[in-house]
Structure formats: structure tokens, C-alpha cells
Design a binder for these strands. Structure first.
Length: 636
RNA sequence: GGACCCAUCGCCUAGUGGAUAUGGCGUCAGCCUCCUAAGCUGAUUUCCCGGGAGUUCGAAUCUCCUUGGGUCCGCCA
């Protein structure tokens, strides 16, 4: 069922212009504007050049061609009208209802893919997310990252691609040493178990402890540090080296300097495999990772493969050395190997190997891209990373191209989340932990449920509260266009009213409620929500879809018709929010229909038709909700 | 200083060069003897695509300039 194609064929017959075959005409047939009461439209301005007529004339002429006798041959077209330059097509809603609802009933997944091209080629796609540091728990920024990464993965696999979800744990480096240092100092053999803490939160506590300690010690040397920085900022001719040395020595002698020294030493010891340092590192990292796994489970995130920075950080050197040999990179007089760029938006120079021969983060990135290709021989590699790293990613992709790996790399660059207080910083609590947000939302939901059902079984309360909380969170984040920054106010931002996850769940639950009430009255309903079972005896073919003539019904049916297009567009442009908006539209249209069109009190034929419409809505809602790992509720 | 991104009603937000620019929140007024009021209807602003120029039959959308905000410009990760 593709009305646009049928219309194109009819039009091609009428126009009989070799420059406008049906295959070309179909591209001019667009979905009509929401406000206009029509299904398809041709903006005839666009045909002006080909037909050598003014837009409004074309619309008029074509409208006249659709004589009643011609229209009689195509019952699916109800009406055609020219409005200025627009040629509007009205599809017969009764026929559309029958087509759409029957297709949804027979297989909603198949229906969802009905607008994918026949020549669709499945690709291998790697999606990397959220690649956290192992020194603190996942925070709200990671939640957006995870949900976007997961959404991309799910949409791509739904339309038929092979998706590999990967993660990179940044488990080494100075930031890891910081929490290790604090644990050595203050940990006293405490463990997550002895403290009854989620292990990654336990590790994070020491990262915060380090920051507090560092700040405390910093106060004593603030003056010298400022002076030092000022001096260092000067051009090399202006710098007073004696002053710099003197200041540095003074700072080194203070507890703050001591701390920095110990950190550096720890990093060196780690690289030299000093047993005690490695043991501590292993212990704390396994805590962090264990905690991450729990959070991933909460969001049902499963990675195909996890890479560890500690295992690959050194491995990009060969690639750089090869590049040097080929003359792609340069070696500076002090030994450092650099890449130079002249393109706009790139740094002039990027160091790839330090003068002391050690590697940098970007060195590893080069390796990892190759490693991923070895592992998955991907067609497309998506990095889900915040937009503050736009330049780094651009640099990376440019370097990969220079190295002869100009593959389809995509930086899925999403916007920043800010708190009401400003940007989130892991230090000093201006950060919201992912786990805490879930908990907070669950509590909120719990209260709401208890208000409504004071005697409900506690287990059931918790179950519903969890689903509502997750739906609220996922929807709240995914409904924003992904490049947009947004402000997260943990106190107020997430409400259960308006454009929210719970609103969608509520619409779904109401459909179930209708079915439940129907069952009580021994009315044949298409679905039993309490048993999660489809009524096998239910016959869609026996339904008279001609009865669905109410404005709200027609609007709802048109909306259901759009699902395959919406899915295609959202998946191909990597924009999950399109489907979130669509969910919202369906829920809104359904609720309007629900308020205006009674179902169970109607005569049996109209009742059956409306029940079928409800079931079609339910199936679409569930298909999209579950696509994004949102679990529906049969009762709210 | 350079590069990149953003700007839509009191607030949040959608918008794939085309019709009167999408929804939501807030405020006010209605709607439960009726399939769950986490809902619906109406009112509120009648104005808004930060400002200016250009391209176009047509610009919130493309280009340039400009203003304001953000981010990035480590031999950190």
C-alpha cells in the first residue's frame, strides 16, 4: 500500500511528459502540512521549470484533469483540489483504515519497514558509547550518551543493519591515579562491601576526596601558581627562567607539590608495572567496572565488545611511525612526531608521539579505529561523543584519512547537558549520578502511584514505578533534537505531565483498560492485556472499516499510516527524537479520539471497528516504545 | 586572537526552501452517575523565527555581515 506511488502513476498518465515519469513524479508528492486537511500535496511551483507554466496554473489544470469519471476508477482517492499552487490529495479514509489496520494486525514490524527501499543494503555499523573514565560513576551526561547510543543502535538494527555496540573504558592515566592516591591516603582497606556502597560510587567518593584535598592544599600555593602561570604565558623571549625555576621549586616543597609529585610517580610506577600500584589499580578499576555494568543493566545496554585503554594506549605508535616513514607526519628537533594541518577548523599542528617517545590519547584512537575495523570490518563507525570534542574528532578523522583509512566515520556530536547551576563537573558534587536520577524518579513515581492506588501490592508499586521512571527519563532525553544543549534541573525538569514518557504510557494503559473492561463485558476484544495474549478468534477481515468516519478517527488513521516513513527518516538521519515526537502525536491523537468516541457503549459493529483501531494504536505504540527499550504498562 | 555551534510567544520546544510556524509548561475558566482526570476542552499571547542585507516565484530553513550566548584551540585524558 503506497498511495503516493499510485498517485504518481495516475499523474504520469495525465501529464504524459517524458521528463516526468511516475518514478520521478513520486518525489514531488509530499505529505501534506499538518494544518491542512489533506493527505498528500504537490507544490506545483516545483514543476514550473519542467512544465513551463506558473505553479497555480499547473495545480488548476491538473485538478481539472481529475474528472469524476477518472476518480471513479480510483476509489482510494476521495478528492483532489487545487489551493493556489498546491494540489491536494485526499485519500479515502475508509480504505486507508482498512489497509493500514490490516497490515498492522498481520505484522507490525513488517509494516514498520514497508517504506524501506527494495534495494536496501544492510551495512555493518559500529557504535561506540559511552566510553567513560573509570574513576567515578556514570553521570547525567553519560545518560544522554547511553540513550542516544542505544537508540542509534536499535534504530539501525530495526531497519536491517548489523550493529556492533562497543565501549572504551578509559582506565588509565592521571585521573585514575587521583582516586587511587586518595584511596591510598584515606581508604584504610575499606571496600564497597564494608561501606555498603555501589562499587563505582565508592571509587567516585575517592575522586571527590582527592579534589577536596587538592583544593585544600592548593590554597597555600595559590599566589605562586598564579605567578608561575603568568610567567609561563609570556613569549619565550620574555620569560624569566630563573623566576620560573624558583617558583617551581618553592611549589614543589609544599604539600601541594608533594601531592603532584606522588601522582606523577604513581603514573610512572603504573607504566613500569610496579606490583603494589598495579594491584591497587586493578582493584579499583574492577570496582568501577562492576558498578558500570550494573548501570548498563539498568538501561539494558549490552556491548558487543569492550576495549580497555590500558591495553591499547601504547599501540598506536607503529601507525604513527609508519606515517612518519611515508612522510605524512614530521619529526621535530626534540624528537616529537607531529601532524600538520592547513584545513580550516583543524589545529595547525597535533603531537602524535611525545618527545620522550610516549604516546597520547589520540595515538590510541588511531589504533582503536584500526582495531575496530579488524574486529568488525565495518562500513560505518559512529562515535557517540559530546560536541565539546568536535575538533578532536575532526582531527582524528583527518589523521585516519591521511593514514589511508578514509572510512565512513561519523562523530555523533550531541549537545551539552547543563545543570541549573552551570556545567556539570565531576568534582564537588555539581554532578548528578545516573543511578541517583533513576532512583529519584522512581521515588517520584512511587508517590504518584500510591496516591492513586493506596492498597496496591508493594512489589507491583515498585515495578510500575521503575517502568514509569525509566520511561520518563528516556523520553525526556530523547525527545530533544540531539545537537541541542539542554538544561537539566533535577528538582523540576522531569514532570509526569505534558510531553512526557508517562503520558505515552498512560495512553497505552488506557487502551489496555478498554480491552480489560471489554473482556469483563464478554465483548470480543483483539487483545487481553492481563495475559499479554492476542485473541486468536479475532477476525480483522470481518470488521467494517467504513464506520470509522469521525474526524478524530480519520486523523488517527492518517497518523498510523505515517509510521513507516517516520521510522525510515529517523533511522537514516540518526534522529531518534523524530520518533519520540511521533509517539507523542499518536498518544495525543489517541487521547482526543478516546475522549470523543466512546467504544464499549456503542453498537457491536462500530465497537468492533473502534476496538481494531485501538489495537492498531497499541501495536504501533509498543513497537516504538520497545524499540527504545521503554517497557509499556498495561495498567497505570 | 582563531575555529565551530546555538538564538523560535513569559518559559521549554518541533520545524526535510513552500500554505495561517509545532507541541508542551505556566496562568485563568470549564469537564469525572460515562472505557483510568498522569487526561480533555476553551481562554490567555494575536505576537515571535536575535538584528541587517542578499539569493529565490517563495527563507525560521541557504549565503554574507552583525549582536548576544556556548564550546574548543595541551607533548592532558
Amino acid at each position: 500500500m503506497n498511495y503516493a506511488e499510485s498517485i504518481a502513476e495516475i499523474l504520469a498518465d495525465i501529464i504524459k511528459n517524458p521528463d516526468l515519469p511516475a518514478s520521478k513524479l513520486v518525489n514531488f508528492i509530499e505529505s501534506a502540512n499538518k494544518k491542512v486537511n489533506a493527505d498528500f500535496t504537490i507544490i506545483c511551483f516545483k514543476l514550473q521549470k519542467i512544465l513551463k507554466l506558473k505553479g497555480p496554473e499547473i495545480a488548476q489544470n491538473l485538478a481539472h484533469e481529475f474528472t469524476p469519471s477518472l476518480l471513479a476508477k480510483y476509489p482510494m482517492i476521495e478528492r483532489i483540489e487545487a489551493v493556489g499552487p498546491y494540489l491536494n490529495f485526499h485519500i479515502n479514509k475508509k480504505i486507508m483504515a482498512k489497509d493500514v489496520i490490516q497490515e498492522i494486525f498481520s505484522d507490525v514490524h513488517k509494516y514498520s519497514l514497508s517504506k524501506m527501499f527494495d534495494n536496501f543494503k544492510p551495512q555493518k555499523i559500529v557504535v561506540e558509547y559511552p566510553s567513560p573514565n573509570t574513576n567515578k560513576p556514570l553521570h547525567f551526561g553519560h545518560v544522554r550518551n547511553m540513550l542516544l547510543g542505544q537508540a542509534l543502535s536499535r534504530m539501525n538494527s530495526k531497519i536491517g543493519h548489523f550493529v556492533y555496540e562497543t565501549n572504551l573504558l578509559n582506565d588509565r592515566g592521571i585521573h585514575i591515579c587521583k582516586s587511587m592516591w586518595a584511596y591510598q591516603k584515606f581508604g584504610k582497606n575499606r571496600t564497597p562491601k564494608t561501606e555498603g556502597k555501589k562499587p563505582d560510587h565508592f571509587v567516585g567518593d575517592y575522586y571527590v576526596k582527592f579534589a577536596i584535598e587538592e583544593n585544600r592544599l592548593l590554597k597555600e600555593v595559590e599566589e605562586q601558581l598564579k605567578e608561575l602561570e603568568l610567567e609561563k604565558k609570556k613569549t619565550s623571549e620574555m620569560q624569566d627562567f630563573e623566576k620560573i625555576n624558583k617558583l617551581q621549586q618553592e611549589i614543589d616543597k609544599t604539600p601541594y607539590g608533594q601531592m603532584q609529585k606522588e601522582l606523577q610517580q604513581m603514573l610512572i610506577d603504573w607504566e613500569n608495572h610496579v606490583p603494589e600500584v598495579r594491584a591497587l589499580w586493578k582493584k579499583m578499576n574492577s570496582w568501577a567496572e562492576q558498578g558500570f555494568q550494573e548501570t548498563f543493566q539498568l538501561f539494558n545496554i549490552k556491548h558487543t565488545k569492550t576495549y580497555y585503554e590500558s591495553q591499547i594506549y601504547d599501540k598506536g605508535k607503529n601507525l604513527v611511525l609508519q606515517g612518519l616513514k611515508k612522510g605524512i607526519f614530521e619529526q621535530l628537533s626534540d624528537g616529537a612526531i607531529v601532524a600538520r594541518f592547513s584545513k580550516k577548523g583543524l589545529p595547525k599542528q597535533k603531537v602524535l608521539i611525545r618527545s620522550d617517545g610516549t604516546s597520547l590519547y589520540i595515538t590510541q584512537d588511531l589504533y582503536l579505529a584500526h582495531q575496530k575495523y579488524d574486529d568488525f570490518s565495518y562500513d560505518q563507525s559512529i562515535y557517540v561523543i559530546g560536541n565539546e570534542q568536535n575538533m578532536q574528532m575532526k582531527t582524528l578523522f583527518e589523521l585516519l584519512t591521511k593514514l589511508g583509512m578514509p572510512l565512513n566515520n561519523i562523530h555523533y556530536s550531541y549537545g551539552m547537558i547543563r545543570l541549573t547551576s552551570g556545567k556539570m563537573k565531576s568534582r564537588e558534587g555539581t554532578v548528578v549520578d545516573a543511578d541517583d536520577v533513576v532512583k529519584e524518579l522512581q521515588e517520584l513515581a512511587k508517590n504518584e502511584i500510591k496516591k492513586r492506588y493506596p492498597f496496591l501490592d508493594l512489589l507491583e508499586v515498585n515495578n510500575r514505578a521503575f517502568r514509569i521512571a525509566m520511561a520518563a527519563l528516556r523520553f525526556f532525553i530523547l525527545k530533544y533534537e540531539y545537537t541541542r544543549d539542554f538544561i537539566f534541573d533535577p528538582e523540576q525538569s522531569i514532570s509526569f505531565e505534558g510531553e512526557t514518557g508517562p503520558y505515552i504510557l498512560y495512553a497505552y494503559a488506557r487502551i489496555c483498560s478498554i480491552f480489560r473492561k471489554g473482556l469483563e463485558k464478554k465483548i470480543p476484544v483483539p487483545y487481553n492485556p492481563d495475559e499479554n495474549s492476542v485473541n486468536q478468534n479475532y477476525q480483522v477481515s470481518s470488521i467494517d472499516f467504513n464506520l470509522l468516519i469521525h474526524e478524530e478517527e480519520k486523523a488517527l488513521i492518517s497518523l498510523l499510516y505515517q509510521y513507516p516513513d517516520k521510522l525510515k527518516y529517523a533511522a537514516e538521519t540518526l534522529r531518534p527524537h523524530e520518533l519520540m515526537r511521533y509517539l507523542l502525536d499518536i498518544a495525543q491523537y489517541f487521547t482526543r479520539f478516546y475522549h470523543v468516541c466512546p467504544i464499549l457503549s456503542e453498537n457491536s459493529t462500530l465497537q468492533a471497528a473502534r476496538l481494531a483501531l485501538c489495537e492498531a494504536v497499541r501495536l504501533i505504540l509498543k513497537d516504538i516504545l520497545n524499540l527504545f527499550e521503554i517497557q509499556e504498562l498495561n495498567e497505570m
